[in-house]
């Protein structure tokens, strides 16, 4: 009998993940018993109405928060058992974050912003510069390395933030509404960038409200009231 080779361990394995907040007498079920598996190389869009638990889910995936119940294995490692310093190292090496509001340090140049994760990774100065420049070039901003965030457009700032998320070669790129602050044309540029990065092998999970952004994902997770209510894979549209 021929057996298939064992499939590789999923990058993200979430089982019965639960997070609630106690607000006085009430309990808000921000995330309620979510089970989902995401393999390497997927491009996942997380959708759902406001308050449905998307950000809560992303914060848990990004090891910024710990669940009240359920399990989360990232690349085969149970996150719940890790110390605070080990979680910091996971965020530093394995995960890249992109935020709606960019979160660049306003007084630092683009390249200094991109180098910041390497400061905490203990990368030497010469290598920092080289890798930061490569990351800026990969997002099309090699010529803007010395510019401050205030001297860049919103789309350019988000590209700098993406370069910063990429610079330590993470397994996973997490983006919570990365196009939320951008106009449609710029949003499409940014989503095209995510798609290109995904094709080069990095796993992408992004939150969006916009169906036209979600079209480019290979899989869409729908949340409502803290629950995962729909999970659809399909062929993504290719960005221009």
């Amino acid at each position: 009998m021929a057996s298939d080779p064992a499939p590789p361990a999923p990058l993200i394995a979430v089982r019965n993940l639960t997070r609630h907040y106690r607000m006085g007498p009430q309990t808000v079920h921000a995330l309620d018993d979510v089970t989902v598996t995401i393999r390497r190389g997927e491009f996942v869009a997380v959708m759902g109405p406001s308050g449905s638990g998307k950000s809560t889910f992303m914060n848990l995936l990004g090891c910024l928060d710990l669940p009240d119940a359920g399990r989360y294995r990232l690349d085969g490692t149970e996150v719940a058992g890790l110390s605070s310093d080990a979680l910091a190292a996971v965020r530093n090496r394995s995960i890249g974050f992109v935020f709606q509001s960019f979160n660049l340090l306003p007084r630092q140049s683009a390249i200094d912003n991109v180098m910041l994760p390497m400061v905490y990774a203990g990368v030497g100065h010469a290598l920092r510069l080289e890798k930061a420049l490569a990351a800026l070039e990969s997002v099309g901003l090699g010529a803007r390395a010395g510019h401050r965030p205030t001297q860049l457009s919103g789309g350019q700032q988000q590209r700098v933030a993406i370069a910063r998320a990429l610079v330590n070669d993470p397994l996973l790129l997490l983006a919570d509404e990365p196009t939320g602050a951008l106009d449609t044309a710029t949003s499409l540029e940014i989503i095209g960038l995510f798609q290109r990065l995904n094709r080069r092998g990095i796993t992408v999970v992004l939150v969006t409200h916009e169906p036209e952004v979600a079209r480019f994902a290979s899989r869409v997770l729908q949340f409502r009231d803290g629950r995962l209510i729909d999970d659809q894979s399909r062929d993504p549209e290719i960005a221009a």
């Binding site: 910024l64 310093d85 910091a88 190292a89 965020r91 090496r93 979160n103 994760p117 905490y120 910063r164």
Partner: peptide
């Protein structure tokens, strides 16, 4: 505060 949050998110330990 936001800068500190960002630094923590990209891998700063509390000690850093």
């Amino acid at each position: 505060t936001r800068e500190i949050g960002l630094r923590l998110a990209i891998g700063a330990r509390r000690r850093d």
